[in-house]
């Protein structure tokens, strides 16, 4: 068993140039934690999702050091909303996580589950030869498939 046995092969994607606002509405519509970002040719570029949106909702200083506590800041709901509005038209590739080494269709199943456990995220699956996105593994669907077989 490998990654391809539990992946969804036609996931919703964000195409390079999509805005943060586009991403938020797609995440809500598709009920996803994150979405893969691809270029016009389907080449995988990175991940954008709840984690990046939360960071954008916080003061910028948080991006400099994500270990600092912010209990001293007394921002209102409106302040946080304004912060998100300020980046709503920015392209997602500016903030996406491009560091994650994606899974491949041949990644063993146990390794796939381990990476999901460590990342606590939905993960992209990329063809190592073409670098094109071929699917996504989500915690929900993989567990569903695994539990169905027991």
């Amino acid at each position: 068993m490998t990654c391809k046995h539990v992946m969804n092969s036609q996931p919703p994607v964000l195409v390079k140039g999509a805005t943060v606002a586009d991403a938020v509405s797609m995440l809500r519509r598709e009920n996803r934690v994150n979405l893969p970002v691809v270029d016009a040719n389907g080449k995988y570029l990175g991940l954008f999702g709840a984690h990046q949106i939360l960071l954008l909702a916080l003061p910028k200083g948080m991006r400099a050091d994500d270990e600092q506590h912010l209990a001293f800041v007394s921002d209102s709901f409106q302040d946080i909303e304004n912060r998100l509005k300020a980046v709503a038209n920015h392209p997602v590739e500016r903030y996406m996580d491009g560091d994650f080494q994606p899974l491949t269709p041949d990644t063993p199943l146990v390794e796939t589950l381990r990476v999901m456990y460590v990342r606590r995220d939905d993960l992209p699956v990329v063809d190592p030869a073409t670098k094109k996105l071929v699917g996504i593994v989500t915690v929900r669907s993989s567990l569903g498939k695994l539990m169905a077989s027991t």
């Binding site: 200083g61 948080m62 991006r63 050091d65 600092q68 800041v73």
Partner: peptide, 10 residues
């Protein structure tokens, strides 16, 4: 620096 960035943003 991080706390400076927070102050400047405010």
């Amino acid at each position: 620096v991080p706390v400076t960035m927070v102050i400047c943003e405010e």
